[in-house]
Computed example of a mutant assay.
Amino acid sequence: MVAPAFINPARAASRGAPEFNSTVWAIAFRGNTVYAGGSFTSVKSHGRTYVRKRLVAFDARTGAVLPWNPVAKGTVRALAVAGGSLYAGGDFTEINGLRRSKLARFDSSGKLSRWAPRVSGGVTSLAIGQGRVYAAGQFSSVDGARRGNIVAFRHASGALDRGFRTAADTRVRALAVTRTRLYLGGDFHKVNGTVARRLAAVSTGDGRLIKAFRPVAPATVMDLAVSPSGLSTATGGPGGRAVGYTPAGRVRWTHLFDGDVHTLAVLGRTTYVGGHFDRACKSTSTISQRGCKAGYASRVKLAALDDRGRLTGWNPRANGAIGVQALSADPAHRWVAAGGAFTAIGGSSRERFALFGG
């Protein structure tokens, strides 16, 4: 087992990461820069407060807020980096006073690009792979073309990929991409007209449903992450669960929590878990188990699981009723970032963002 990368909360606080005045919903890394998106309108760093309306960039090593200062009119819920581009998705209608309907792209200098697709509803997830930018959420059309809650664009040109024609019957909350598969998670019950409850895989090229992947998700899938061993999901429902699946959709492991699991990030063979739970089952179970016979261990809003779904000793202890809404991992630096509505980690002030690792 690869040991999880973490530092204790005191060292996390001393890193000087910025603090936010409202929820952080999305995090992305590029080199030493961290991008964050959310509903916040100001950010505090090293005793100074900066106006940053729902988007910010800062130095991961020092916590210094960078000059980049776009203004989003509406919440940013998803971020993704591809080469020199940063993509943002959410509920916003304008960026820097220019119309940007739920999607926007910034170039390597941080300048807002001319890319401006028109999306009929909100975007909650982004994924990038195989020369495409995939966006999902709850919408029925993009640029006037009918699209059922998921769409693909060509990364190089920004053009709508008209050959990718996946459609889900209701909200897609999460995406994860591999070389040949795009995994979808959410509230849906059908994909491309075929029964696929809450979790499915489609071809990265044309969007056709991959029928060899036949999982049975126990509840709404809120997030997805790909590890060397397969797919992991974050779910709500009765209690919360993190579930590991094989490429065929068979359950590898299930870990129970006493509240919804909202978000996942994979670093090496460790899966980091965030949500609004306070306890995690001491044992890994099967998907049919409703209770936790081994009893629970305290894991407040954050936990980590090994490659077999077993609870590790990582226990930074976030707070708040809502807790952690976003996790992101940077393999190059072995960093894990957490965002959400919490205000403390391990009893130390940590307003809605924390960075672990290094």
Results as ranks from 00 to 15, higher is better:
residue 95 I to T: 07
residue 267 L to R: 00
residue 171 R to A: 09
residue 174 A to L: 04
residue 69 N to Y: 04
residue 275 G to W: 03
residue 26 A to S: 08
residue 5 A to V: 05
residue 185 G to Y: 02
residue 215 P to K: 03
residue 311 L to F: 15
residue 187 D to S: 12
residue 17 A to E: 05
residue 157 S to V: 15
residue 75 T to V: 09
residue 358 G to N: 07
residue 145 A to F: 10
residue 358 G to C: 15
residue 44 K to Y: 03
residue 201 A to P: 05
residue 156 A to M: 01
residue 131 G to W: 11
residue 37 G to P: 07
residue 271 T to P: 01
residue 281 C to I: 09
residue 31 G to H: 04
residue 285 S to W: 08
residue 248 A to K: 11
residue 142 V to L: 10
residue 240 G to M: 11
residue 119 V to C: 05
residue 267 L to P: 01
residue 302 L to R: 01
residue 210 I to Q: 15
residue 218 P to F: 07
residue 187 D to L: 13
residue 292 C to H: 05
residue 185 G to D: 00
residue 343 T to C: 07
residue 50 Y to K: 05
residue 202 V to K: 02
residue 88 A to E: 07
residue 95 I to W: 02
residue 321 A to E: 08
residue 230 G to C: 10
residue 62 T to C: 11
residue 36 A to I: 14
residue 243 V to S: 01
residue 283 S to Q: 04
residue 18 P to C: 12
residue 315 N to D: 13
residue 105 R to F: 05
residue 358 G to W: 06
residue 33 T to K: 07
residue 272 Y to A: 00
residue 63 G to I: 06
residue 75 T to K: 04
residue 239 G to D: 07
residue 74 G to F: 04
residue 100 R to E: 08
residue 309 G to N: 03
residue 284 T to M: 10
residue 351 E to C: 06
residue 39 S to W: 07
residue 275 G to V: 15
residue 106 F to S: 00
residue 130 Q to G: 15
residue 83 G to K: 11
residue 248 A to V: 14
residue 351 E to G: 11
residue 74 G to I: 05
residue 51 V to M: 05
residue 206 D to H: 06
residue 275 G to T: 10
residue 209 L to S: 09
residue 195 V to F: 05
residue 307 D to H: 06
residue 82 A to F: 05
residue 76 V to L: 12
residue 294 A to L: 15
residue 97 G to P: 02
residue 131 G to Y: 12
residue 196 A to W: 01
residue 178 T to Y: 02
residue 15 R to Y: 10
residue 230 G to W: 04
residue 234 A to C: 07
residue 22 S to E: 13
residue 355 L to M: 10
residue 171 R to S: 10
residue 145 A to C: 09
residue 329 A to D: 04
residue 132 R to V: 12
residue 168 A to T: 11
residue 199 L to Y: 07
residue 37 G to Q: 00
residue 67 P to S: 12
residue 298 S to Q: 03
residue 202 V to H: 06
residue 285 S to F: 05
residue 118 R to W: 14
residue 261 V to N: 00
residue 9 P to N: 02
residue 243 V to N: 03
residue 106 F to R: 04
residue 39 S to P: 12
